[in-house]
Write a protein that binds this DNA or RNA. Structure first.
Lengths: 132, 132
DNA sequence: CTAAATGCAAATCATTTGCAAAGAG
DNA sequence: CTCTTTGCAAATGATTTGCATTTAG
């Protein structure tokens, strides 16, 4: 996967301490943290302002390196671009959001949108089910 | 399709003028309006406060009659549950339903759920796209 | 009559912006 | 040195809440 720091250099974004810290948080994250959470993690390493976190995130989204998802709680969550976009499975009973990394499903959804003349931007998949 | 007014009666929600107005806006909407837009439409019929619109929407979501989607613009958009038996695609710019044919989708969704350890009881799939 | 529902104004909460100071190249 | 980036405080915009008043049943 492309290193975020390298992408910044290529784009002429200065590698400042706060930017470096936020990038590192994003590189090492295994989940989809919100801005507040990213700020919390970054703050453990160095002094970074919340607006700076938002600015860095905005830059990276603009650069196409991150995608932004907004769920019911209205907090934006950020994710490294990989095989985007992919559907989410939401277990209503537990409230858990489970990522469904199903290439076949993602491809089919994309294709379905394309057939209608659209570029798939996002999708919501809600399953009402019982645990087996 | 279940009438919203009937559902309110069943749940003991009083049929007040503002509630009636908001319900009517939702019944007749062919798109997925945000709260502000719902309020705008309702206001053309009678005096309804924006907080009341939010309260009615919240009640209906809680009752399982509406679903709430939040996009990049952080505005919540509301949609009748069960209004469309099949998956569909929403134009992000306009909120309009474009439509989707779902050959093979249902089967794939079921299989996806099963792989995650769930028995699929019901599902709601919504795609969001931009016109190419 | 009584509890539910309302409108208004003010409060919240995530996010953004203005601006002077600090720092990269 | 110059232009970008920052932190802080204040602004913004969608949504929610407090509360006195109205209203359905």
């Amino acid at each position: 996967m492309v290193r975020l720091v390298q992408m910044c250099e290529q784009r002429g974004l200065r590698l400042t301490e706060p930017r470096r810290t936020v990038l590192d948080v994003l590189e090492t994250a295994t989940d989809h943290p919100c801005a507040y959470e990213i700020h919390r993690r970054a703050s453990q390493v160095s002094n970074v302002g919340l607006p700076t976190v938002y600015r860095v995130l905005g830059d990276l989204v603009k650069a196409g390196l991150l995608t932004r998802h907004v769920f019911g709680d209205r907090k934006a969550r950020y994710e490294r671009v990989g095989s985007e976009p992919h559907p989410y499975l939401i277990d209503i009973a537990s409230g858990q959001i489970v990522g469904v990394d199903d290439d076949g499903l993602a491809r089919l959804l994309e294709e379905t949108a394309r057939r209608l003349g659209y570029r798939l931007v996002d999708c919501r998949l809600t399953l009402f089910g019982e645990k087996k």
